[in-house]
């Protein structure tokens, strides 16, 4: 499938905001003998920003990593239950994890640009997935992705320089541009701002605001103000359970569960 048809499809799909994009049913994850997630049921809706919050070790990152099978890379990790993307089980034998990760992209806590040029960092995905027919098309994808990531103005005259030479915030936006370049449907973000200063953080948050029209975003964050600012819905995890999920406004003004209340107000549970 080439780049344009995929974009056109996505634009058509964008009209279905609020429909379920990904669905998790009774998802259990164990590392060896330890169960880290105890049966999570959670829907991710089309083109929403969903924030996952909770104390360290609560399972929110584990859950996030299930959504594009990043946990496959961990040998001792066992997953049961069902996760679907547009109704299709992503753990089905017929699913190629590499193709899945093109549809469900990921941005990590620490910016991790490849030790390549800025251009190649963004061009990498489209190249290996064979999205482009010629160099010009590839150049355009790189430019569009960098523009959408709000980085174009800062790097357009030095695309050949190494991506690792950028500042932390720029590197993170480069990683977002890299994720966008393969035109994913869902973008997973695992604490994307925890290594950034407030200005760089604000730029990323602005970026999330911009791109949420086109992508479904799931973001794990320790910064509750950030969850409150960027997300439409918030899910609170505690000790491997999903305690509560609801409209972000409701979670931060009148949470339904005492544990959520205690966590977000900074009290002992």
């Amino acid at each position: 499938m080439n780049y344009e048809t995929k974009t056109a499809e996505k634009l058509m799909a964008a009209e279905n905001i609020g429909e379920t994009k990904m669905q998790a049913r009774d998802v259990r994850v164990s590392y060896g003998d330890t169960e880290a997630l105890h049966g999570v049921n959670l829907d991710v809706r089309h083109n929403e920003v969903l924030a996952l919050i909770g104390p360290s070790g609560c399972g929110k990152s584990t859950f996030l990593r299930c959504l594009n099978r990043m946990n496959d890379t961990i040998d001792i990790c066992r997953i049961s239950g069902e996760i679907t993307l547009d109704g299709q089980n992503i753990y089905d034998r017929s699913i190629d994890p590499v193709q899945l990760r093109a549809r469900v992209g990921m941005v990590f806590q620490k910016p991790n640009p490849f030790p390549k040029s800025i251009f190649d960092n963004v061009a990498y995905g489209p190249r290996i997935h064979g999205f482009t027919r010629d160099k010009e098309e590839l150049r355009q994808i790189v430019e569009t992705s960098l523009r959408r990531a709000g980085l174009w103005k800062e790097v357009h005259d030095r695309l050949d320089e190494p991506g690792t030479g950028l500042s932390g915030g720029q590197q993170q936006r480069l990683c977002i541009a890299r994720a966008i370049a393969v035109n994913p449907e869902v973008i997973l973000m695992d604490e994307p701002c925890s290594a950034l200063d407030p200005i760089a953080t604000a730029l990323i948050e602005e970026l999330i605001d911009e791109i949420k029209q086109s992508y479904t975003i799931v973001i794990v964050t320790h910064n509750m103000q950030q969850a409150a600012r960027v997300s439409r819905r918030t899910a609170f995890f505690h000790l491997g359970n999903l305690v509560e999920v609801g409209e972000t406004e409701q979670i931060f003004t009148n949470p339904g569960d005492q544990r959520t209340q205690d966590y977000i107000t900074g009290r002992f549970g």
């Binding site: 931060f252 209340q261 107000t265």
Partner: peptide, 9 residues
């Protein structure tokens, strides 16, 4: 403090 939930109320 940027209070939330019951503290904010």
């Amino acid at each position: 403090r940027q209070p939330v939930a019951s503290d904010l109320r």
